[in-house]
Simulated scan of single mutants.
Amino acid sequence: MSNRELVVLGTSSAVPTRHRNHNGHLLRWDGYGLLFDPGEGTQRQMIHAGVGVHDVGWICLTHFHGDHCLGVPGIVQRMSRDGVTEADAAFPASGERYWERLRHATVFHDVVRIREHPLSGPVAELDTGGAPFALTARRLDHPVEAYGYRLTEPDGVTMLPDELAARGVRGPDIGRLQRDGRVTAPDGRTVTLAECGVRRPGQKMAFVMDTRLCDPVFELADGTDLLVIESTYLDEDAGLARDHGHLTAGQAGRVASEGGVARLVLTHFSERYRAEDEERFAAQAAAVFGGDVVVARDLCRVPVPPRRALPAR
């Protein structure tokens, strides 16, 4: 199983259907789990998907419309029941009263300590503690205050075994070279990290839900390996999308194309469309985006693409 993958728990928008649960997406990232917008029924969908609350370290809400947050009470209470003692939660600060209602919706034996990260302003940088990634939120254009999220892994270095061997660097000295940037070789020479490694670009992921097209959408998506984005409507219903603060499949494709995205995941579909319309979402996005397009289905898993290759040295 991939260490970096998206587990799709639900793909419907405001109203669930027979085939699509309310919105819900779990990003698994090297042992960390970020649960985005758990709608109603998310707890049960997690059981079907073979994941549990121990896989969730963060709950990230884009906004407080019900299809994006009504699953919070079940998730939080399940955390306490299953012995999860710590988690983080990010949400728009303007909806803090809704968070409190969801967080304490019923009586239960509450043992989980949730570190809260209320979001305010056009851009918010979240404190991820010791996690090996940064998490940024940007305000979107929706009838209620909403944010999109961007996860960024720092650049690293891929060591070159032949270059290390040629300079006699081995064993613990390799770790010191990576940590300090230089090390003294057995022959007394100073060996630098640049001589024995090449830059490894960090991977990036963005999660963009309910919004009209706006600059922050493109900023969140820019250069991402995986873009998970709403495509509530088909292009012929662009007027409805605009009126209700949503995107079409073609608009999602445009965002991916202009951002140089590697893999585009379309989700959050209006209940007005039928199963046979699925191919039309893919086609409208692909008409403007030449990369990989995935039309998400409930309980599917979407791996984060492999790292992009760097030019030869």
Rank of each mutant, 00 (worst) to 15 (best):
Q43W: 01
D162Q: 10
I47D: 13
T42Q: 09
G41R: 03
P186C: 05
C214D: 05
E116A: 06
D88M: 15
D30E: 15
A124N: 08
D155Q: 01
H22M: 12
A185R: 13
A124H: 15
R301I: 04
I114G: 07
A312W: 10
L27S: 01
A252Y: 10
V255M: 06
H246W: 13
V302S: 07
V208C: 06
T211C: 00
R44F: 13
A262D: 02
D30Q: 13
L234D: 09
D292Y: 08
V157G: 05
F281G: 07
P172L: 13
M79S: 03
G171Q: 07
R179A: 14
Q77V: 07
A286M: 04
V123H: 04
R150N: 03
G83H: 07
A312Q: 14
G33R: 09
A309V: 12
Q251D: 06
V112T: 14
P154G: 06
P161F: 12
Y147L: 12
T42E: 02
V107E: 14
G175S: 15
C60P: 01
S94Y: 12
T211H: 00
Q178D: 09
G39P: 09
E219Q: 08
G202E: 04
T224M: 05
I174P: 10
E271R: 13
I47Y: 05
H63Q: 06
D235W: 11
L247S: 06
A296T: 07
M1L: 11
E230N: 05
Q77M: 11
H117F: 05
V72A: 11
E125F: 01
V288I: 08
G71W: 02
S12I: 08
L247D: 01
H19A: 15
L9W: 07
S12D: 13
V294S: 02
G188K: 10
A252M: 13
V198C: 12
R263V: 02
A185W: 12
G253H: 06
H117T: 02
G175W: 15
P161H: 06
A296H: 09
M79R: 08
A238C: 03
G33V: 07
L226G: 01
G250F: 08
F207N: 09
S270D: 14
H48A: 10
A287T: 01
V56A: 12
A256R: 00
R212D: 02
Q251S: 06
A134K: 11
F108M: 11
L220P: 01
E163R: 15
E219W: 03
L227C: 01
V217F: 11
P303V: 08
D127R: 15
E5A: 12
